[in-house]
Design a protein around this nucleic acid. Structure first.
Lengths: 339, 339
DNA sequence: TTGAAAGCGCTAACAG
DNA sequence: CTGTTAGCGCTTTCAA
C-alpha cells in the first residue's frame, strides 16, 4: 500500500489478486456465483489488508448515509446528553451514526442546524425544539419530502410528525396533589415560555391538580421565565417577594429548579421547612443537591430510545402514520417536599 | 423535481438550463472562464432550487469528509459534554462536523469506536482515554498513517501525539497546601487507577504538597478507586473507617467528589466541620451541591477548543511536531473546605 | 467560452 | 463463474 494511502479499496484487492473489481465485490458479499476458492482467497486478503467498504462510495450509490441528525437545545445538560445516549444505543444497533448539533436554545441556530444537517445528507432528524421556537417552517422541507423526522420533549405538529413526550399534565397534577397531601396550600409554579408544549401541559396539570384539591387558582403564584438560570432566579424572586409567599414551589425543569433552590437558600429560607420545592429533573441531579430534591424524574434514556425507534420506523415504513409515544414519569419523593 | 428526490444535483441544473454539467460546476465555483451572463443564470437557478453540493460526492473525490471523530469515556458527564461543546465550536468555524462516540469507560468499546470511526472515514480523532485503557495499540494505525489524532485530559504517547491537559501536579499541590493553611493536617486523597496520567500526576502534586508543608506522607490516607460512584463510595468508607480518620479529603474528579460527599453525609459527619472536602470538578456542579464545593475547576470549554485547534494544526501542517497544551486550573474556595 | 471524458469506490445489469 | 459497463455527484484535465 503506497504511503499516505489510508484506506484500501476493491481496486487494490483486485490488482493484488489479479481479478476484476466486480469479482472482488461479489466475493466479499458472498455472492453464490463466485467459486468458493476465489471467494476464500479474496476474503482472506481483504481481512489481512483491513479492507472496509468506503461509506462515501456506498452513500453515493445508495443515496443513504446511515447518519441521523440530532438537534438539541444544549449539549451540556444531563437531560439531553442522557437522551442522546439512548438515541445512540438504538442507532448503533442499526449500524447508524448520529450527528449532533446544539441550537443553544435559539431559533436562529436551530434553523441553521437543520439546513446544515440536510446539506450533510443525514437520512433524517431527531429534534428537541429550542426554547425560542414558535414557528416551524424550517421543518417544512423535511415533511414535504418525507424525510424522517422525530420530535421529543418539546414538540410541534404532532399530527404530522412522530414524537416522544412524557405525561406532562399528569405529572404536574401529581406534584400539586403531593404538595397538598403534605399540608402545603400556597403552591407556586415557575413556568417556561407559553408556546412550548411542556410549559402549557404542566400548567394545565397544575391547574387541574389545584382544582382537584379544592384550591382556588391564584394567578400571582404562576410566574414565567425563559428557563435560563438567571431568569429563573428572578422568577423565584418574584414569588418570594409576594406579600403572601408561597409555601411550596415547583419548577418546570432542572435549570429552573436549581436556580430556585439557590435563590431560596440565598434568602435564608429553609427547604422544606419554609418552602417546599419540587422539580422536573433527572435522577442524577435530584440526588446530588441538598436537600435531595423531590422530583418528577424523566426516563431520559428511554426517551432517546423511543425517539430513535420512531425514526427507524419511518425509515422502514415510510407510509406509517405519525405516532406519539407518551412515556410515564415517576414522582420520587425526597426531603425537599416533606416537612 | 421528481417526487422522492430529496436533493438536486448539478445534472438537474444542467438539464434545466441546457448546458453541460461542467459548465454548471464552473459557474458555481465562479470560474473566470464562464461568461458572466451564464454564470449569473446558473447561480440564480441554483439558489432558487436550493442546490447544495453533495458532500458524499465531494468526499469521494477529495478523500476528505470534513468529519472529526470524538471519543469520550461517557456522554452524560458535564465535564465531557462541555469539552465537546468547545470542540464543536472550533469545528463549526472550520466547516467540520463531529461524530461522537462513548467508550463507556471500557477499553473494548474504545477499540471498537476507533475502528468504527476510521471505517466511517473521519479525517482524524480527538480522544479521552477510557479508564481501563493501559495499552495503546489501537492507535497505532492512526500514528503510522499520519491520521490526525489528539488526546485530552487522559493522555498517552505524549511524544508522538499532541495533547491537551491541565496542570495536574500543580493543582493537587495547591489543594494540599490550601488544606494545610486552613488548619487541616490529616489530608486524604482518593485517587483513580494508577496507569492514568491524571491519577499519577495528582498523586505527585499531593505528595509534593505534603512535603512542602512538612507533613509526612501516610500511605493509609491515599486510597484508590476505579472512579465509579460505587467504588468511590467504598474508597471513602475506607478512609472514614481508619482509626485515625482524615480531617480533609480530596477526590480525583467529579464523580469521586460527589460520592465522597454523599458518603460523608450519610455517616452523619459534617462538611467542613468534621471533614473538609475538595474536588476536581467543573464550575456548575461545584455550586449546585451543598455545601458548595471548593474545587479545582477545569476550563472545560477551553480544553475542547484547544484540542480542536491542535487537530486542525495537524490537518494544516502535517509535518509539525506533536505539541502539548497545558491549561491552568483555578482553585476556587467555597464552604466545603473552610471551617 | 464550453463540452466531453476520466476517475474517486462501489454495485448491479448485462455479456460472455 | 467472471469481466465489462454504467452510473451515483462532483471536479478537472484535455479538446474544441
Amino acid at each position: 500500500m503506497e504511503k499516505g494511502k489510508r484506506h484500501i479499496s476493491l481496486k487494490d484487492l483486485a490488482l493484488e489478486i489479479g481479478v476484476s473489481i466486480s469479482t472482488v465485490s461479489r466475493a466479499l458479499n458472498n455472492h453464490p456465483d463466485i467459486s468458493p476458492e476465489v471467494t476464500r482467497r479474496i476474503q482472506k486478503l481483504a481481512a489481512e489488508m483491513n479492507y472496509t467498504p468506503n461509506p462515501l462510495a456506498m452513500g453515493l450509490l445508495k443515496q443513504a448515509t446511515r447518519m441521523i441528525g440530532v438537534i438539541v437545545p444544549d449539549l451540556v445538560t444531563h437531560f439531553y446528553s442522557s437522551i442522546i445516549s439512548g438515541i445512540e444505543e438504538v442507532a448503533e444497533e442499526k449500524g447508524y451514526y448520529i450527528l449532533i448539533a446544539s441550537s443553544n436554545e435559539t431559533l436562529k441556530k436551530e434553523i441553521i442546524s437543520v439546513r446544515n444537517m440536510l446539506n450533510t445528507r443525514v437520512e433524517g432528524l431527531i429534534v428537541c425544539l429550542s426554547q425560542e421556537t414558535k414557528s416551524y417552517e424550517h421543518f417544512d422541507r423535511l415533511i414535504k419530502n418525507d424525510i424522517p423526522l422525530v420530535f421529543f420533549d418539546r414538540v410541534c405538529r404532532i399530527n404530522e410528525v412522530p414524537s416522544v413526550v412524557v405525561n406532562n399534565v399528569d405529572a404536574a397534577k401529581k406534584i400539586t396533589r403531593h404538595f397538598y397531601k403534605n399540608g402545603f396550600r400556597r403552591i407556586g409554579y415557575i413556568a417556561g415560555p407559553n408556546h412550548l408544549n411542556i410549559s402549557q401541559e404542566r400548567a394545565e396539570g397544575y391547574l387541574s391538580g389545584l382544582q382537584s384539591c379544592g384550591i382556588e387558582f391564584n394567578p400571582e403564584l404562576l410566574v414565567q421565565c425563559n428557563m435560563s438560570s438567571k431568569d429563573a432566579t428572578r422568577a423565584t424572586g418574584r414569588l418570594l417577594d409576594l406579600p403572601q409567599k408561597p409555601d411550596a414551589i415547583f419548577g418546570i425543569n432542572d435549570t429552573v429548579a436549581f436556580a430556585a433552590m439557590k435563590e431560596i437558600k440565598r434568602r435564608g429560607l429553609r427547604i422544606p421547612e419554609d418552602i417546599a420545592l419540587v422539580g422536573f429533573t433527572d435522577e442524577f441531579h435530584a440526588t446530588v443537591v441538598d436537600p435531595p430534591l423531590t422530583s418528577i424524574t424523566h426516563p431520559t434514556f428511554e426517551i432517546g430510545q423511543a425517539a430513535a425507534r420512531l425514526f427507524f420506523n419511518q425509515i422502514e415504513n415510510p407510509e406509517s402514520e405519525p405516532e406519539q409515544v407518551v412515556l410515564n414519569t415517576k414522582l420520587v419523593v425526597r426531603k425537599s417536599s416533606v416537612k
